[in-house]
């Protein structure tokens, strides 16, 4: 391992240490004890329950996210340990959602465990190849999930479901913490190789999809319900996800586009030679 790698390792560990300390001090919660299941609105519309089920489905691919995601960052202690911690936090999200679905009486155990088994017949695949690309993907995906949870929390409140609103709020708080960690790592990567990282941001943005696409049954229908319930559309994605991530990374859209264009131009020239 060279000195640059050692320096990066030290920075990543420092980031993980900060993230972990804050999580232990401020964000630890128990999905079985800290959620008011006695405040479920058992008459909530089916759309709201469907939103919870969809989140639960997406979170159910945790075994794949962990197994595949952690290997990409295995050489980097801080990031690998973050992944382990991330998995623990995500596991609580699915437990809370599953408990809501069961304790509300809106889904039976048979239905949920059958659904779980059906979900596991398909594997989630890494959307990108490198640790840098996956870290950038993490920024957008976690921020998008955070925004959707916040929107759905508002909706659950409007519909008088204090339990589900609490779950969405706790999950959202974890997601934004994950997003910040990924963003801080990307800032380091930008310092090390700005052009290469910008090009990877462009690549990830071009091919970005949420993790449930193509694997969760009836995903399009589910997303439609989620969009209608949470009022999430194109404008929300750009305003609340894409531009805020770029702003945090101190990258402008123009700089990003220039990096992508220069890469295309290099490819064109090299193909012509």
């Amino acid at each position: 391992m060279n000195l640059v790698d050692t320096a990066r390792q030290a920075r990543l560990y420092s980031m993980y240490r900060t993230f972990f300390d804050k999580a232990e001090q401020e964000r630890r919660w128990n999905p079985l004890r800290d959620v008011p299941y006695d405040k479920i609105n058992k008459d909530a519309p089916e759309q709201l329950v469907m939103v919870a089920e969809t989140f639960c489905c997406v979170e159910s691919y945790l075994p794949d996210y962990v197994a595949k995601g952690i290997n990409v960052v295995r050489p980097y202690f801080g990031q690998a340990w973050f992944s382990a911690n991330w998995a623990y936090e995500e596991s609580k999200h699915s437990v809370a959602l599953l408990e809501y679905l069961l304790q509300s009486g809106r889904r039976t155990p048979e239905y949920m465990f059958d659904l779980q088994s059906r979900l596991m017949t398909v594997e989630w695949k890494l959307p990108f190849d490198t640790s840098r690309q996956m870290t950038i993907y993490g920024c957008f995906q976690e921020m998008a999930t955070f925004v959707i949870y916040v929107k759905q929390e508002q909706r659950a409140k409007e519909l008088g479901d204090e339990c589900l609103a609490t779950i969405f709020r706790l999950n959202a708080r974890d997601e934004i913490a994950h997003c910040r960690f990924y963003e801080d790592v990307v800032k380091v990567l930008l310092e090390e190789d700005r052009l290469g990282t910008l090009r990877d941001i462009g690549l990830v943005a071009k091919h970005f999809q949420m993790p449930g696409v193509g694997i969760v049954p009836d995903y399009e229908e589910r997303v439609k319900v989620m969009r209608e319930e949470g009022k999430v559309d194109r404008a929300v994605f750009l305003q609340k996800v894409f531009f805020p991530v770029l702003k945090y990374l101190e990258v402008t859209r123009q700089e990003l586009q220039d990096a992508v264009w220069s890469e295309k131009e290099e490819r064109r020239i090299s193909a012509a030679e």
């Binding site: 943005a205 071009k206 970005f208 194109r234 404008a235 994605f237 750009l238 894409f242 859209r253 586009q257 992508v260 264009w261």
Partner: peptide
């Protein structure tokens, strides 16, 4: 064309 595709067109 999704929001990010639109941004590429805009760029």
């Amino acid at each position: 064309i999704d929001s990010l595709g639109m941004l590429e067109i805009v760029g």
